[in-house]
Computed example of a mutant assay.
Amino acid sequence: MTNKTFYNASELIDAENAQDPNSEIYQTKSYPKELLYSNRMYEKLMEFHPDASEAVQIASKAQHICRWKIARESYPMNRLGYLKWREYLKKFHSKTTAEILEKVGYTADFIARVTFLIEKKLLKKDGETQLLEDVICLVFMEFYLDPFVQKYDREKMKNIIHQTWTKMSKKGHQEALKIKYSDTNLELIKEAIGL
């Protein structure tokens, strides 16, 4: 499709995410939480893999589209509830994105590919699904690790980091180790991944 189609889709995804009532402060400025996440995902993708396809670019921006609309508390607050919530979110994000892509004129095949990626199908087997997962993990490690460290105990954090690490490719691992962490967090990461 044309650059205009991609631009229109991006604008609509941003407009949806800009409605997030939750905000996050970054470098003294306040942003709608999911808009900031979307921008981080896209920027990290282009930094990590500048030749990423248009489908992956859109999937990166729409990974959490309108996430605040499906509250975690709407599912049981246990492991099973968490997994059901995450599964529902994938469908919700892919459907919301598909509607936008249809509106701006993308083909059915392209839309199917983007929804496939957002639902993270064939992780470890599909190269683009793996690329998207690497970017999700890199964004988490760079921007969201520290808030988690402040929230959970050391053993829980080691488990979270270990699980994140196992989802990534070797290239993702190399990139993750280039991120500037605090000394404490770097020590925790090394402990969790056995370095």
Results as ranks from 00 to 15, higher is better:
residue 124 K to H: 15
residue 49 H to T: 07
residue 84 K to H: 12
residue 115 T to M: 11
residue 84 K to N: 14
residue 102 E to Y: 09
residue 139 V to H: 03
residue 66 C to I: 06
residue 131 L to H: 04
residue 43 E to W: 06
residue 134 D to R: 09
residue 118 I to Q: 07
residue 122 L to Y: 15
residue 44 K to I: 07
residue 136 I to F: 14
residue 106 Y to R: 00
residue 70 I to T: 10
residue 102 E to P: 02
residue 143 F to I: 03
residue 69 K to V: 08
residue 54 E to S: 11
residue 124 K to A: 10
residue 101 L to N: 03
residue 78 N to M: 05
residue 131 L to F: 08
residue 105 G to Q: 01
residue 135 V to K: 03
residue 55 A to Q: 01
residue 99 E to D: 14
residue 120 K to N: 08
residue 107 T to F: 03
residue 84 K to M: 15
residue 137 C to R: 11
residue 114 V to E: 03
residue 79 R to D: 15
residue 53 S to G: 13
residue 66 C to W: 09
residue 119 E to N: 14
residue 117 L to D: 00
residue 49 H to I: 09
residue 63 Q to F: 10
residue 70 I to A: 08
residue 139 V to A: 05
residue 46 M to E: 05
residue 106 Y to H: 09
residue 51 D to Y: 10
residue 97 T to I: 01
residue 127 G to L: 14
residue 62 A to N: 02
residue 46 M to V: 06
residue 83 L to K: 11
residue 133 E to K: 12
residue 83 L to N: 13
residue 124 K to Q: 07
residue 103 K to Q: 13
residue 75 Y to K: 13
residue 46 M to T: 01
residue 51 D to V: 06
residue 74 S to A: 13
residue 77 M to W: 08
residue 48 F to G: 10
residue 47 E to N: 13
residue 125 K to N: 11
residue 110 F to A: 02
residue 87 E to P: 03
residue 59 A to F: 09
residue 108 A to Y: 07
residue 61 K to N: 04
residue 100 I to T: 02
residue 101 L to I: 10
residue 95 K to A: 09
residue 47 E to I: 10
residue 66 C to Q: 14
residue 43 E to H: 14
residue 105 G to A: 01
residue 44 K to L: 11
residue 76 P to V: 08
residue 96 T to Q: 14
residue 135 V to N: 02
residue 82 Y to N: 10
residue 87 E to C: 11
residue 58 I to V: 00
residue 60 S to T: 11
residue 134 D to A: 08
residue 69 K to L: 11
residue 57 Q to E: 04
residue 82 Y to E: 14
residue 43 E to K: 14
residue 97 T to S: 07
residue 54 E to R: 07
residue 93 H to N: 04
residue 79 R to K: 15
residue 131 L to N: 01
residue 58 I to Y: 00
residue 112 A to S: 14
residue 120 K to V: 01
residue 112 A to R: 04
residue 141 M to L: 14
residue 102 E to T: 15
residue 141 M to S: 08
residue 127 G to E: 15
residue 133 E to H: 07
residue 58 I to W: 01
residue 47 E to G: 10
residue 132 L to M: 05
residue 86 R to Q: 13
residue 53 S to E: 05
residue 86 R to S: 12
residue 73 E to Y: 07
residue 64 H to E: 08
residue 142 E to Q: 15
residue 70 I to M: 15
residue 143 F to Q: 03
residue 43 E to V: 06
residue 63 Q to I: 04
residue 63 Q to N: 13
residue 70 I to K: 10
residue 43 E to C: 13
residue 71 A to N: 12
residue 124 K to D: 13
residue 122 L to T: 12
residue 118 I to R: 05
residue 55 A to G: 03
residue 102 E to R: 12
residue 127 G to H: 12
residue 104 V to P: 00
residue 57 Q to D: 05
residue 112 A to I: 06
residue 65 I to K: 01
residue 87 E to Q: 15
residue 56 V to M: 06
residue 110 F to D: 02
residue 140 F to M: 07
residue 104 V to I: 06
residue 128 E to F: 04
residue 129 T to A: 03
residue 104 V to A: 00
residue 78 N to T: 05
residue 58 I to P: 00
residue 131 L to E: 01
residue 49 H to G: 08
residue 117 L to A: 00
residue 61 K to W: 02
